[in-house]
């Protein structure tokens, strides 16, 4: 369980990093941030990158900034940065709640938000967050900067719209209106395991009715996405068991659930139903 030989590059600036990446990408060069997914994959020799562009020594990539409408998360911001709220907005509380469900403490202190998106595991809590909130993913290369909407970013299991010479430099999340309610729930076999299904919901209340509902589901399909049918089941309804069950049912019916040797599609739809309803219950606290 030792990785195949590779050369590690340690650029000091983002410009230098994308320049190196442009050179080494055709020889299976990969970006190394927290390494909590890439390094185990290399140890199993499922990936054998010849070059690693280690971005940990680049100044400023650990920056989290808010301009009043958007929260910008730099490429080296660790999951643990969200253990406390990073912004005085419901988004801060949402990120803190979600972060607690990511793996285990040592992993959260090393793994990065942006790295999680670049890796694009179907179960990733941050991928679900980005998809649900319609994040903008900022790709950098020697060709310049390319903002990618979340709904165009995820392409399949561990597959994204990033070109091989592009580095995921930043993720921008829209701040939420101050009256936004959110709820999150995930199901995994053990504490800290990959979620077999997870749901993140946000909405506002207008005259006691749900408006602007967002229902994101992760872990059930090759990548997380918003479920329009579930959102439609919520909008215009008063929050409560009836609407929540209808939305959960709609989500369970809408997903094309992944199957494996131990887990049937039927069971995964059961989980989607459960996590969506529980996320909605959580939102209604």
């Amino acid at each position: 369980m030792k990785p195949a030989p590779f050369i590690r590059h340690v650029p000091k600036t983002l410009d230098e990093a994308v320049k190196i990446l442009a050179q080494v990408a055709p020889q299976d060069g990969r970006v190394l941030a927290g390494g909590q997914s890439l390094v185990p994959i290399m140890a199993f020799r499922l990936a054998k990158p010849a070059h690693l562009v280690d971005i940990n020594e680049i100044d400023g990539l650990d920056r989290i900034a808010s301009d009043g409408t958007t929260l910008s998360i730099g490429a080296c911001v660790r999951h643990g940065a969200f253990h406390k709220s990073v912004v005085g907005n419901p988004l801060g509380a949402l990120l803190t709640f979600v972060a607690r469900h990511i793996a285990h403490y040592p992993i959260r202190m090393r793994g990065t938000f942006c790295g999680s998106l670049a890796h694009a595991d179907p179960s990733s809590e941050w991928c679900l967050t980005a998809a649900t909130l319609d994040a903008t993913i900022v790709a950098r290369s020697t060709r310049g900067e390319r903002p990618i909407p979340a709904r165009e970013f995820f392409a399949g299991i561990m597959s994204t719209a990033l070109a091989e010479d592009e580095l995921l430099a930043e993720v921008r999340l829209p701040l939420l209106s101050p009256d936004t309610k959110f709820g999150f729930n995930e199901f995994s076999r053990r504490a800290g395991d990959f979620a077999m299904s997870a749901a993140l919901v946000t909405y506002r209340l207008q005259g006691g009715k749900i408006a602007e509902a967002r229902v994101g589901v992760g872990g059930a399909e090759p990548f997380p996405r918003r479920i329009a049918q579930a959102e439609a089941a919520l909008n215009g309804q008063p929050p409560g068991d009836k609407a929540f069950r209808a939305a959960a049912e709609a989500a369970a019916n809408a997903v094309e659930a992944m199957e494996d040797h131990q887990t049937s599609a039927e069971y995964r739809r059961d989980l989607v139903r459960a996590v969506v309803r529980r996320a909605l219950e959580h939102s209604n606290r």
């Binding site: 199993f44 076999r189 053990r190 504490a191 800290g192 395991d193 990959f194 494996d260 040797h261 131990q262």
Partner: peptide
Amino acid sequence: IVYDDSGNPLTATLAEYMPPTARE
């Protein structure tokens, strides 16, 4: 420990083979 019908082990890491942790 899970094998598929061809005898391939599907639980070759501790992500798939799950001993309880302190939380369980």
